[in-house]
Amino acid sequence: MSASDVTQKPSLRERLRYQTVTIDLSPNHDGSMMRSIQKPRHLGRYLAAAIAILILVLCFCSINYSTFQGFKWDQLGAIFSDMFNPLPNSLKTWDAYWSYMWGEAIQAIWLTNEMCFIGVILGAVLSIPIYYLCASNINHNRVLRGVFRVINDILRTIPQMVMALILRLFFGPTLVTGIASIIVFTSGIMYQLMYEYIETLELSPFEAIRSNGGDTIQCIRLSVHPEVQPMFFANLLYTFEINIRASVILGYVGAGGYGFLLKTNFGSGYYDKIGAMMIPLFVEVIFLQIISNAMGRKSK
């Protein structure tokens, strides 16, 4: 340690940030090799953890538990017996149950799939220029980047149901409303997932193409696009899966398809029909999950 280090006392800020640890490194522990290291204290992290715990405790205390009557376990059996059994007031027989599943339920899911497929593809294509514009390592113009991010964040914050209700004013209660709201929703998710991924990429090939004389779009096309392409398709499947589930909500506001049928059955108390509709949806979501996992693995 030099003389100046000893005489210069560290500021309070420095002392709060770092702790000076002095260790004896001599083999005999005789103090002949005293060395000191600056060890960060991470006071901010401890503070943040303390605040988070405090908020959690406060939330727990502020909720009124007087109306809570315990968990009704018997309802679990009731739901299963209502949904996965033909009910006397609607489908009556197992034959009717299965034919409903293979007929109307799958038809409704197919319609929703078509809606989702169109919406997701168009939304994803729309998101391509947006996510490149939002990635800070590609678009160095802070203002332009900020504008695009804010617009997209606003669109993404609007709950899909509200979005569908708004779009219904323009398109009426049809499948087009569903497609339009899926486009907005998909491009919102895709832009977020993709620009964050792009920002983690190392852009040295981009520099190389730029030195070859490429303009920005050429550089993106030749150096960034091949690197993000597998991630793009993995995320595309992921958003497709989300949209399949979300389209239930879209049906509720009259955008057609699966959700619309679900709403009708719910209103009439045909719980067995709802059960019959759940089975193929469940199979499809699992299937999509498997594909998107496989693609995610490949992209690594």
């Binding site: 090939p205 520099e207 070859n212 490429g214 779009i217 550089c219 030749l222 690197e227 597998p230």
Partner: peptide, 27 residues
């Protein structure tokens, strides 16, 4: 090296021609 890791060698070498093409052709 700054190669596009996920692209083939052939595509990487062809990328040297980028300056001879307009944006649309490259796309």
């Amino acid at each position: 090296f700054n190669l596009v890791k996920r692209s083939t060698v052939y595509k990487n070498v062809l990328a040297g021609r980028v300056g001879y093409h307009n944006t649309l052709e490259t796309m």
